[in-house]
Design a protein around this nucleic acid. Structure first.
Lengths: 144, 144
DNA sequence: GTCTATGCAAATAATTTGCATCATA
DNA sequence: TATGATGCAAATTATTTGCATAGAC
């Protein structure tokens, strides 16, 4: 389950670029974050990281997530129900649809929304530092 | 600090309409919810309710809030930082700006946003059951 | 060698629940 | 009087922290 050396080198580089110390646990977590496409929570990340690096504790996962977020490498979301869920900071900002039946998270982007929110805030004398825009949805079934 | 009888009758009516049993603690909490304009959290509601009805426990506040939410009388929000905050369900839906400096919550509404979110979801085969739209903002100061 | 990261277990914070008792319908 | 509500204290869940030790630079 350990990472091939070439891949490990890649994640080591990402950590170095983030400016935090390189440890086996962090390299493993970085690998997990990079390959995840499902917005996992801390518990999930811990499970997956342990598969690469069994010595990883949940406390270290939380501490490393906090460090990576402070460095702008990852971001977290607090969707309804359950704890925070994490993803790498995307090149292009997006918002989320949460499928209430499956719990799955779908990403979408809308420039109109981004513009509208800035307008709304400006009209009230505010500038937007960040926002949350989450749609809690159900699949439309054509057979009623 | 007890409520004047006429006001108490009003809140009793609201509880009866909601279809839940009437107790002194619930009448007091209903009074607090009705007069609040600041999206208080459970701890705040408990403090304020105790001013009317000192026998009220925090557990009862939580239980009553859950009952009122189930009946569609109130709704809660999980803004960043701290616990859930509550408000009566407004006649007209609105979203929120959170002032990051003061912690104050400002309400706004936008039909465009409502329409846009429905469109976005529909394009992906979803219908929106509810949403979260929160702008975390700072006041624009004209003196730089 | 120094300074930071780690594991573990205990501490927090917000909320929920079990249980015996009490109040409402 | 029967059922549902209450207070209190203990339980839960997600997360954070203190501390002694191990590991990175």
């Amino acid at each position: 389950m350990a990472l091939p050396p070439d891949q490990a080198a890649h994640f080591t580089g990402l950590l170095r670029k983030a400016g935090i110390r390189i440890t086996r646990q962090r390299v493993a977590l970085m690998a997990v974050l990079t390959s995840a496409t499902d917005h996992p929570d801390a518990i999930d990340l811990h499970k997956r990281t342990k598969a690469h690096e069994p010595s990883t504790s949940l406390a270290t996962v939380y501490r490393t997530l906090a460090a990576l977020e402070a460095k702008g490498v990852i971001q977290h979301h607090n969707f309804e129900g359950g704890g925070a869920r994490f993803e790498l900071v995307p090149k292009i900002h997006h918002d989320h649809i949460v499928d209430l039946d499956s719990g799955k998270v779908i990403e979408f982007k809308s420039d109109k929304i981004e513009r509208l929110q800035a307008e709304i805030a400006a009209q009230l004398g505010y500038e937007v530092l960040h926002h949350r825009f989450e749609l809690y949805c159900r699949k439309i079934s054509d057979k009623g």
